[in-house]
């Protein structure tokens, strides 16, 4: 029986402001088996980024239970992130460091030795455009380069679980290809992946599981094979997704 890498049960989150209340997530429940590559799909405002921030324990759910790699998530506890790589919509970058210094700082704080850190950083950045700008301050980076760096930071410590929010956004075609190759390699090595994206074609290449969110609720959660089995003949995943959204 396969282990569950990520389990979300009855998770809800509401945002209140002067303008009103928004129910960002409502009773979200799904599981991601260990070693799976799961795509998180949904239109803008579906709650994908909120869910990922909650998984990263930087946002509190109003109700619900979450367990990551078999351990229940507790508010204020962050040690589990030594085994999880996160890339959030809010990029965690230190503008006044160079790209290389930021990677070095993360590597050293993760406990990598100087030699390990150097080898890992060189190997990771090589296929990406950001490799040519590693000695420049991050504040001079383009949006695409920042996203490349944030993506690489999530992979630096070889996490068992990778949770990525829109990893391909603002990346050029070459960087997207390099990122997909890297993710496929990590997946083959046994890492579990949860990737939120609007790029269904990329997710189809990578993922064996899907979670579809719409207006804060789970519309579908299961394997891609299951999903295809339930589609009418000759309907593609993309066509089905668009149909779900229209019906939703």
């Amino acid at each position: 029986m396969s282990m569950i890498a990520l389990e979300v049960q009855g998770c809800s989150r509401r945002f209140r402001s002067r303008k009103g209340t928004v129910q960002a997530l409502q009773d979200v429940t799904f599981q991601v088996p260990e070693g799976a590559c799961c795509g998180l799909l949904g239109p803008n405002g579906a709650g994908k980024s909120t869910l990922i921030r909650i998984l990263a324990n930087v946002l509190k759910p109003d109700v619900g239970r979450i367990s990551v790699l078999g351990e229940p998530l507790r508010w204020g506890r962050h040690a589990y992130k030594r085994q999880v790589g996160f890339m959030l919509e809010d990029l965690a970058l230190m503008e006044r460091l160079t790209g290389r210094e930021q990677l070095e700082l993360a590597a050293r704080l993760y406990g990598l030795s100087p030699e390990q850190a150097t080898v890992t950083i060189e190997a990771l950045v090589a296929p990406f455009e950001v490799a040519t700008a590693l000695d420049r301050w991050i504040e001079t980076y383009s949006h695409g380069m920042r996203r490349q760096l944030a993506f690489l930071l999530a992979l630096l410590h070889r996490p068992r679980l990778l949770v990525l929010d829109e990893p391909f956004e603002a990346m050029d075609a070459q960087a997207i290809e390099a990122a997909i190759t890297l993710l496929q390699a990590r997946h083959r090595e046994g890492a579990t992946l949860l990737i939120s994206s609007h790029c269904l074609d990329k997710l189809e290449r990578l993922c064996d599981h899907l979670v579809v969110l719409h207006r804060g609720r789970v519309r579908f959660a299961g394997s891609v094979a299951d999903c295809r089995d339930h589609l009418p003949a000759a309907e593609t995943l993309e066509a089905a997704y668009l149909r779900w959204l229209r019906e939703g």
Binding site: A56, N57, V58, H78, A79, Y80, K81, R82, V84, F86, L88, D90, L91, A92, L93, M94, E95, A106, L109, Y110
Partner: peptide
């Protein structure tokens, strides 16, 4: 800034 705090939070460091 918040970004530096977020870095440490996402890296799970003490």
């Amino acid at each position: 800034d918040d970004r530096e705090w977020l870095c440490y939070r996402l890296w799970g460091v003490d």
